[in-house]
């Protein structure tokens, strides 16, 4: 589904990604973790070309990301993305937020999009809020709406960049719940998160990133059983001491 092949990226003299390679199969739920500033966001944004990279290649469902021939719109339609701070369009109602891209990018019929959007809203528990604007929703509700917006494009893979980091603790669960359901339905997911509980429950694999390198790439069970690098073990101990 996604292949990372020796991806490198620099900001000037500072190398953020130092040759990252990984393979994510269909239906896998991969959790990316690692210390702050290690390059997790940068890595995940390279996948849908929100960030450019200088070396290596990424394939998403056969499409090469770093290529002049690749249509970025087509690539991005395959990979839904959810951001830390939701980023709902503040001038549009929740329903319009969800309907915008399927209409403009995929040129689907309005009626069909509306039905699909309503189904998605029901799925994330927001059917009653369709006509509200983002500002009237809580953080957790906004993030669930943002997930619905990404799903409306019928993506093959969902990318999450710390989807619960900006939420109050009581709202984290409602978002994780939606993500877990998604994982159970077989959605391919790549998720940057510090929620180790979530990782333990649904991740099939863990990528541990430190200083721009994928230090560990192992099944979740191995990772949490301590069969991982010394750096990752130290990170796990730290996360256990500082939950959230």
């Amino acid at each position: 589904m996604i292949t990372l092949d020796n991806v490198t990226k620099s900001y000037g003299a500072f190398q953020v990604l130092k040759g990252c390679s990984a393979e994510i199969g269909r239906g896998e739920v991969v959790v990316v973790c690692g210390p702050s500033g290690s390059g997790k966001s940068t890595l995940i944004k390279c996948i849908n070309a929100l960030e450019t990279f200088e070396g290596g290649q990424i394939w998403v469902d056969g499409l090469a990301v770093r290529s002049a021939q690749t249509d970025h719109s087509a690539l991005r339609a395959k990979a839904g993305m959810v951001f830390q701070s939701f980023e709902l369009f503040s001038h549009l109602s929740i329903l319009d937020n969800i309907m915008l891209a399927p209409h403009l990018v995929q040129k689907r019929v309005k009626d069909e999009i509306r039905e699909h959007a309503k189904t998605l809203l029901r799925r994330v528990g927001l059917e009653r809020h369709a006509d509200k604007y983002p500002i009237a929703l809580s953080g957790g509700q906004q993030q669930r709406a943002a997930i619905a917006r990404a799903l409306a494009m019928k993506p093959d893979v969902m990318l999450f960049d710390e989807p619960t980091s900006a939420l109050d603790p009581e709202m984290v669960q409602e978002v994780l719940q939606v993500m877990m359901e998604l994982a159970c339905e077989g959605m391919t997911m790549m998720c940057v998160t510090h929620e180790m509980g979530f990782a333990r429950q649904v991740a099939t694999r863990i990528l541990f990133v430190d200083a721009g390198e994928i230090v560990d790439d192992c099944p979740a069970a191995d990772f949490f059983a301590g069969r991982c690098s010394v750096r990752a073990q130290a990170f796990l101990r730290f996360e256990a001491d500082h939950p959230g």
């Binding site: 849908n48 929100l50 970025h72 719109s73 087509a74 690539l75 991005r76 339609a77 990979a79 839904g80 993305m81 951001f83 701070s85 980023e87 709902l88 369009f89 503040s90 915008l100 891209a101 403009l104 990018v105 995929q106 943002a146 917006r149 990404a150 494009m153």
Partner: peptide, 18 residues
């Protein structure tokens, strides 16, 4: 205009013109 929303729009596949 919040840059995050612009990035979100890009991530959804909207063209720069859209």
């Amino acid at each position: 205009v919040p840059t995050g929303q612009i990035a979100a729009a890009r991530a959804l596949g909207l063209s720069e013109r859209q």
